Amino acid sequence: MSLYERLYDESEKAKVRFVGFISEHGRYDFGIVYTHMFFGKPLVVCMQTGRSSLLSMEDTENLEYLQKIFNLRSREEAEEIALFFRSNLPAITMEIEAEH
């Protein structure tokens, strides 16, 4: 008997973007993995802490969530990160999956 049941095992060539920027609250370095998996939500990795999350444009509205997942010190930091993500994440997620 198997110890696990495989849910998926997919390979794809994903687009990866590395972005670093500085604001008045600190320096930020992110890897953004654009994929057809996960309903088109990009995987965002904080290169400084290793924390990661699947993020959509809608997720950028929840400042408390951003603050928690990226261990940000203040709401102001979360607002800066949200502003960055709003201009760098795809606006529509479900259509990416439909194209695949």
Rank of each mutant, 00 (worst) to 15 (best):
E12C: 04
F39A: 07
G40H: 09
F30D: 00
A91K: 15
Y34D: 00
F18G: 10
S53G: 03
R17W: 10
F85Y: 02
A14G: 01
V33W: 04
A82E: 07
A82Y: 03
G31E: 15
G40M: 09
R51D: 05
V16M: 14
R86M: 07
E79R: 11
F70V: 02
P42D: 10
L55D: 00
H100W: 02
D29P: 03
N88L: 13
H36E: 06
A14D: 04
R86C: 04
K68G: 00
M37A: 03
I96A: 13
R51L: 14
V44K: 04
E95L: 14
A82C: 07
V33F: 09
Y65V: 02
T35F: 04
G31W: 09
Q67S: 02
L63Y: 02
L3M: 13
M57D: 07
L7E: 03
E79L: 13
N62V: 06
I96Q: 12
L66H: 07
K15F: 10
I96S: 12
G40E: 07
S11G: 04
K41P: 06
E61W: 05
L89M: 01
E24D: 13
M47Y: 07
S74N: 09
S87N: 12
K41N: 15
G40N: 08
V44S: 06
E64I: 05
R27M: 11
E24L: 04
Y8L: 00
Y4K: 15
N88A: 12
L66N: 08
G31R: 06
N71Q: 08
D29L: 12
L54S: 08
V44W: 04
R73C: 08
E79I: 11
K13F: 13
I22G: 01
R17K: 15
R75M: 15
N88F: 14
V33Q: 13
D9H: 14
E99G: 03
V16C: 08
R51S: 12
G40D: 05
E64M: 03
Q48E: 12
L66C: 00
M57S: 09
G26C: 11
R6E: 13
G50Y: 12
L66K: 09
A78N: 01
E99S: 13
M57H: 11
